[in-house]
Amino acid sequence: MSEPSKPLIIVEDLAKTFTLHNAGGTVIPVFEHLFLEASPGECVVLSGDSGVGKSTLMRSLFGNYVPTRGSVRVLHKGAYVDITGASPQVILDIRRRTLGYVSQFLRVIPRIPTLRLVMEPLLENGVSIEEAEARARALLSDLRLPERLWTLPPSTFSGGEQQRVNIARSFIRRYPVLLLDEPTASLDAENRAIVVQLIRDALSEGAAMIGIFHDEDVRDAVATRLFPVLAYKVAA
């Protein structure tokens, strides 16, 4: 388990409720009074059936959804910054440097070649084009994505290929905190094993992770503890 070092992400009293103004003001509560921490080397896996709010929680942690209450503090440049109250500029900087997100869907600009997409997070952090390209090539090889695909945009790729591009984009650099939303959903056993290894490597280097894994083998391979989201479900 984890050593007693500082948590990299601290979630306190988090609540999320959707209000659908165009559906007669319908209110959909998702979770409340949620507390969660992840320290270096920890991989907290959210558990629970679908619809329980795992993805909503992940998106709230990433600053993609706006929580109704509570705080999500991320250790960013040596200080805890609450992403729920941060300005857009600060959130973007946290995402650029501290907080990575791997979703099950690849959402990128159309018509950009795969290699370029994988290089982008490095370029945004000021890495030279040459170095970025070298590292991107290495990682795509590790993920066994055929080289002939590298110069193509991933829109026509299979689900598994797109997923690996997505993973490459997120693991190309070491984010201190990584949010993983079903990163292995469309992968075959062999590729799952590669991703598991990537995750373990990052954890051993001190990353903190919070993830959703439906695949039990993967979950058992990477989880340091489970976090049942259902416990925080708002009573209907």
């Binding site: 209000t19 659908l20 165009n22 993609n64 959804y65 973007l92």
Partner: peptide, 21 residues
């Protein structure tokens, strides 16, 4: 007003919800 993906993925105002949907 807000971060682009926040506004588009979790719009708070009725009009934005309508616009996005």
């Amino acid at each position: 007003t807000g971060l682009t993906d926040q506004v588009l993925d979790d719009p708070q105002h009725a009009y934005t919800q309508l616009l996005v949907s």
